[in-house]
Design a protein around this nucleic acid. Structure first.
Length: 278
DNA sequence: AAGCCTACCTGTTGGC
DNA sequence: TGCCAACAGGTAGGCT
């Protein structure tokens, strides 16, 4: 599941192939994703030149002259670069939904479960960072303004658990189930602890843990996922060696206590009962 | 308003 | 071995 680090690695990996390229043709094979793909996406984008590839939370955006293409990868979405020469890109399977034919390569969106989204934001509607879809999501965890004080302030009066708070995305953007669990482990915080009852100093620890967890994941992804223009594209995606996520019943890598799995708001949470305290 | 639940989707896994 | 149910989870929207 692409969370912020995976999206950032993808952004960084595809940007060099895309920037400065003219979009010659757009092929939409499936227009039913999470939301309908904009009708006439080709008319909107053909002839446009990609100027920038940005990210906000788990959203990617391609900035063009007339507007922005917003991309969300959902659970199973991928973006891959294929060379235009040769015939490799002529082979598509039923989950290859959209192709952008550029001058030198093909950008392909694939998404078996179709939880992903492709949206268009015209330039006259304003800057992409003011997009209504971005208005409700929290601060970028890798930005300078993200710290323990911010978490502390934003959680006053909150009765829900810290795990659910992180997952909601309202306070910090881009942290999904895996990195929420891993960050809480790193911070030594019990996932069921009420967010509004955590001290400022423990929030400082949590902010540092989130930063370190995401940064490390990006570095690992970056080192194993160099080449987006070939079948190597997906290598390294989930090669995380997690401390807790998905490890129920197995010994903690720090203290050997058995990792527990609980369910919070219909979602699995993994934690170490020894290392993570209320 | 905060918090909780559900729908959306299909590939993979586990139990019988 | 085969079948089917359960499970995986990001996010908006609807409900309390």
């Amino acid at each position: 599941m692409p969370e912020l680090p995976e999206v950032e690695v993808i952004r960084n990996g595809i940007a060099a192939y895309l920037i400065g390229q003219r979009i010659e043709r757009v092929i939409v094979r499936t227009d039913r994703l999470r939301w309908p793909v904009p009708a006439q996406l080709g008319l909107l984008m053909e002839g446009e030149i990609i100027q920038r590839v940005g990210r906000r939370g788990k959203y990617l955006y391609l900035e063009c002259g007339q507007g922005y293409l917003l991309v969300h990868l959902g659970m199973t979405g991928t973006l891959r670069i294929w060379p235009r020469h040769g015939h490799m890109h002529a082979m598509t399977d039923r989950h290859d939904h959209i192709d952008w034919m550029l001058e030198n390569c093909v950008l392909r969106f694939r998404d078996p479960r179709r939880f992903g989204a492709i949206l268009w934001h015209p330039r006259e509607a304003g800057d992409i960072l003011r997009h209504p879809r971005f208005a409700k999501i929290g601060i970028e965890p890798l930005s300078a303004a993200f710290n323990g004080a911010h978490l502390y302030q934003q959680t006053r009066g909150r009765r829900i658990s810290i795990k659910q708070t992180l997952l909601s995305g309202q306070i910090v953007a881009g942290v999904g189930n895996i990195y929420a669990c891993e960050s809480l482990f790193r911070a030594g915080l019990h996932p069921a602890r009420r967010a509004g009852r955590i001290s400022a100093s423990r929030y400082t620890k949590l902010a540092d843990a989130i930063d370190a967890t995401l940064t490390e994941a990006i570095e690992k992804g970056g080192s194993t996922l160099r080449d987006f223009s070939s079948s190597l594209g997906e290598r390294g995606y989930f090669q995380l060696d997690c401390f807790v996520y998905g490890r129920a019943g197995q010994p903690c890598r720090k203290c050997a206590a058995l990792i527990r799995r609980i369910v919070q708001q219909q979602r699995a949470t993994y934690y170490c009962p020894q290392c993570q305290r209320f």
